[in-house]
Nucleic acid binder design. Structure first.
Length: 542
RNA sequence: GCCCCCGUAGCUCAGUGGAUUAGAGCAUUGGCCUCCGAAGCCAUGUGCGCAGGUUCGAGUCCUGCCGGGGGCACCA
């Protein structure tokens, strides 16, 4: 649609000898009276041509050559907008397209042949996933879906670290609980993992090994048991939300395959690292960042920055066209270091999109719940799924833009009533399914032969919504914003519900009824496709 | 002290520099089912944190301030 407009406008522009690079930009006007699409081109050209915008507009409109079966009317209004009205009959053709393309309707092949890597969740296996991780998990998966929707071949990846201090403490936490179970009282440090799941792991270790591990160090059996059990829990939680990573990348492999050493050598060779106080520093201040940072501690252990850089290099080497990292806002200070280093090393950092989602504030009633894995003060993602269900959880996280500081209302999420926004969409889908069932009983079936009859305002509004799907889902993918899909679907559902109450399908004149039913099926398909991107089910009945 | 994010209706949030009139949902109040599913529809509102600036035009861009969240470790 916009492509066609761009074409006829550029033809007009060349006739008028207007600058070819003029910013032709079409926009959906807020008011229906202003047409279906509008451009402010005359206003934009005022500056360049130093002429009255209305004069420029008049010339453009005069030179426009368009097909009357596509565009019904073009009008110029003050102070310098050109409004375009589409031909209603032409618009109805979309219904035919949708019913032919079915689950593929709205997809784009714009990025076909490209590959993308989406790294998300990436929580270390120190405890069950919390509601806070839920946002990252759901949005990451939806972003991956969106990229697939527009043609990318996507690798969903989970990066984790099973070495380091956190994991030692975890192993030792299990060890101490085990000793307790064996009758050896001990002081359980406050900064150890307090969660009940630690005891459960210790119980299973004891069931398997009895008292034989009294002198076993934390690092071995205890840590390994904790890691594998917790990782299983995490994978199960994710699976309940329909999330499956293709690759779990262990930070440790970066050490065993020599990448860390190699990278350090490279930094030395390039003269961008130096030794001070027994530690190795990276000259980030020379790369435009605030200050130099330590990459190897005086204990000889690297800080997270070094493996992070090495890890991203592996992503480049694996040849992705797009690299997406989704982090919580607690990481917002770390990624600039990594990007700066990559840039100095000669990598194209434009390929990397670092997305930061803001934290989730959990509200239970009016009470704010502060969460901490260490203190075992949290609501797990599993508990939330138990109570609210996967669809609600996915929709809640998907319906907000990443930058929004989210207030997650547990009470609302648990309510299976009209207060819960996800049901609004699912209901529209189920309602259409019901209509189709009822119609079938009387032998009525959708038919695209007569869709040109759909010219009522409520029908046209709905048809125009259908036109927006492909474009809106492409924009959502390019902007990496799941919330846009949800916003679109809410509008589509609302438009359908309004149509439903004002216009009858079954019971109207046969040809009209068939056309309307075909349109309803198109809406159903579009809703299902959109919900599919979000990972939310489209039920036939509720 | 510095950096990132946010501030839109009572509440949760949309809003890609444009048009007399800034939108949804929930909550409130009042209507709508002998008729395709009322988990729906219609009606109901003194709202863009404050102050400047850029622009023909600012919720949207810039600066400052106020308020909230997250960071600024030889923790990840």
């Amino acid at each position: 649609m916009k492509i066609y407009l761009a074409k006829i406008f550029s033809e007009a522009a060349s006739k008028l000898n207007l600058p070819a690079d003029a910013p032709v930009f079409f926009d959906k006007p807020k008011s229906e009276q202003h047409g279906d699409l509008a451009t402010n081109l005359p206003l934009m050209l005022t500056k360049i041509l130093k002429k009255n915008p209305m004069e420029i507009g008049a010339q453009i409109v005069e030179s426009l050559v368009y097909d009357a079966s596509v565009i019904e009317k073009v009008e110029l209004v003050r102070p310098g907008f050109i409004n375009i009205f589409f031909n209603p009959v032409y618009l109805t053709q979309i219904i035919k397209e949708i019913l032919e393309q079915k689950e593929n309707f709205g997809k784009s092949d714009k990025y076909a042949g490209k590959t993308a890597n989406v790294e998300f969740v990436s929580a270390n296996p120190t405890g069950p996933l919390t509601v806070g991780h839920g946002r990252n998990a759901v949005c990451g998966d939806t972003i991956a879906h969106m990229l697939e929707w527009v043609g990318y071949d996507v690798t969903r990846e989970y990066y984790f670290n099973n070495a380091g201090r956190q994991m030692r403490v975890l192993g030792d936490s299990v060890r101490l609980r085990y000793l307790e179970l064996c009758g050896q009282q001990n002081e359980f440090p406050e900064d150890y993992y307090q969660g009940e799941y630690i005891r459960e792991i210790a119980e299973r270790v004891k069931a398997k090994h009895g008292d034989s591990l009294l002198n076993e160090p934390a690092e071995g059996i205890f840590k390994d048991a904790a890691e594998s059990e917790i990782f299983e829990l995490i994978k199960q939680s994710l699976e309940r939300l329909g999330i499956k990573h293709k690759l779990f990348y262990n930070e440790n492999t970066l050490y065993t395959d020599g990448r860390i050493e190699g990278l350090l050598a490279k930094f030395r060779e390039m003269g961008i690292s130096y030794e001070k106080d027994g530690a190795t520093w990276l000259k980030l201040s020379e790369m435009g960042n605030d200050q130099d940072k330590v990459i190897v501690k005086n204990t000889g252990e690297p800080t997270y920055r070094l493996p992070d850089i090495a890890y991203h290099i592996t992503k480049y080497e694996r040849g992705y066209d797009l690299i997406v990292d989704l982090f919580g806002s607690d990481h917002n200070a770390t990624y600039p270091d990594v990007l700066a280093a990559l840039k100095v090393l000669g990598y194209d950092t434009d390929k990397v999109k670092v997305l930061i989602h803001q934290f989730v504030t959990i509200m239970q009633g009016s009470e704010i719940i502060k969460m901490s894995t260490r203190k075992a003060n949290y609501i797990t993602l599993d508990e939330l799924i138990d109570e609210a269900g996967s669809d609600v959880v996915r929709f809640f996280f998907n319906m907000l833009n990443l930058g929004t500081h989210m207030n997650f209302d547990l009470e609302l999420a648990k309510k299976h009533s009209d207060e819960n926004p996800v049901f609004y969409l699912q209901y529209a889908h189920a309602r259409i399914c019901s209509i189709i069932r009822t119609a079938a009983e009387t032998g009525l079936k959708g038919n695209v032969q007569n869709i040109h009859l759909l010219t009522e305002p409520d029908e046209q509004r709905l048809i125009k919504m259908l036109h927006r799907f492909a474009e809106d889902s492409l924009t959502a993918a390019e902007m990496l914003e799941p919330g846009r899909i949800a916003t679109y679907l809410k509008e589509l559902a609302a438009t359908f519900h309004r149509f439903y109450v004002s216009i009858r399908i079954i019971g109207s004149e046969q040809k009209l009824a068939e056309a309307r039913l075909a349109m309803a099926e198109a809406v159903k398909t579009t809703l299902a496709n959109g919900l599919g991107i979000l990972g939310v089910s489209a039920p036939e009945r509720m």
